[in-house]
Design a binder for these strands. Structure first.
Lengths: 219, 219
DNA sequence: CGGGGCGCTGTGAGTCCGCTGAGAACCTGT
DNA sequence: ACAGGTTCTCAGCGGACTCACAGCGCCCCG
């Protein structure tokens, strides 16, 4: 279980990490909103512990942006405020639970475990096309029920195809969105290579080539 | 934003409606599958919330029939079942998302908004003339429902005709716009050749020759 | 009815595009 | 340090595509 703790008070952060590591979690620390957001975007965490009062980007903002990007990692908000409106705010923005400082470590642990247990609830929808299934929550991909192992890049590419399913996607667009936001510095041939990898693993008849334009999911 | 809620449990239906109205949606209720299907057919809804267990016609059936009728309104299925197979079934039948009872209202709202956001992905309108259909998003071309494969140049030419087809288009203009912006260095005969290709693939009676002036779409 | 010009089409050569195998550079965990 | 996996580049191949050319048919004119 991998956790991300976003907390600007260094002492509290270290203490949390020490405790959670002792309880069997792998813990990464982020000291402010921006670095926390970027870390959470990687999508490798099972849950995020998120302070509300953060320098730069507030915890509200972080969870709001994550949800806007279809990132449904379980988020527990932690704040010194304790009014009912604050709680409602946090939950509205997409947090899954809310804890007020000062809190008891045992309580935190219990709520965290409950959060992880019921993680299966706020799950992003499974993406499908034909007999290809991709579960963004678990990053599992199956073809006709059989599991398929994809490298990170292959996974991102397939997910992009599934999200922009039936329309034609150009190689340039893929380089922009799957590779680098800059999109420059990469050869469109790279896309061809990775489409080739995907076809080899998923079988033919999943990704169509539209000559002169790009690629499209087969229907 | 207009929503259709198909739910036979009157209490849950009313509660959902109350919440959604408070969040700014316009909500219609349908108490069973048949009336839900008929309401959804009107095509005036931005999304449909569809219970699986319904008297008369199940939610599976409803979404299946809608899709069979080329109605692609976003559908979120709601069910008490939560096995993985049920999810797969719902998605296979054409639902866009799946929620299991009991669900948290905040989660429903977030997923609903994500669904609407995803759907509002602006799509260029489909171009048609007679029984020729060209979809700029998918780059698919059909004649009387049958798919036709076009080369890039043929596709560009047809798209230009469909966009400016109601008037006469000269060969020089086509060389300018479809071929090279410079328009020089090409033989007007090239246009004749490609119009020939298109006629062969689309059948006669699609592109008229206006002798001495150019071409025009038949109407 | 005859002629000229415009448009149509079959042929073929050169070019372009996308696919693939091989391999270098890099990262990661052991 | 090493092994395995991953990312990306490169070069070559095969097929699709583009376009010029030239001959033919047809339309419209006198």
């Amino acid at each position: 279980m991998r956790l991300l703790v976003v907390e600007d008070e260094a002492r509290l952060g270290r203490a949390l990490k020490r405790g959670l590591v002792a309880d069997g979690f792998t813990v990464d620390l982020a000291p402010d909103g921006v670095s926390g957001l970027n870390a959470a975007r990687d999508g490798q965490y099972d849950a995020v512990l998120l302070d509300v009062m953060l320098p730069g980007l507030s915890g509200y903002e972080v969870v709001k942006r994550l949800r806007a990007e279809d990132n449904w990692v379980p988020v527990m908000m932690v704040s010194a405020k304790d009014g009912p409106y604050d709680q409602a705010d946090g939950l509205d923005y997409g947090a899954d639970d809310y804890l007020t400082k000062p809190f008891d470590y045992v309580v935190l642990l219990a709520r965290l475990r409950a959060l992880l247990r019921r993680q299966s609830d706020p799950r992003p929808p499974v993406l499908t096309s034909g007999d290809v299934r991709l579960d963004p929550a678990t990053r599992e991909v199956t073809v006709a029920g059989g599991a398929v192992a994809l490298s990170p890049r292959e996974y991102e590419l397939l997910e992009f195809f599934l999200r922009h399913g039936d329309r034609v996607v150009t190689k340039i667009e893929l380089l922009d969105r799957v590779w680098d936001a800059r999109g420059v510095g990469y050869d469109p041939n790279t896309v061809e290579v990775y489409v080739g990898y995907l076809r080899r693993k998923l079988g033919p008849g999943v990704i169509d080539t539209v000559r002169g334009a790009g690629y499209r999911l087969a229907r």
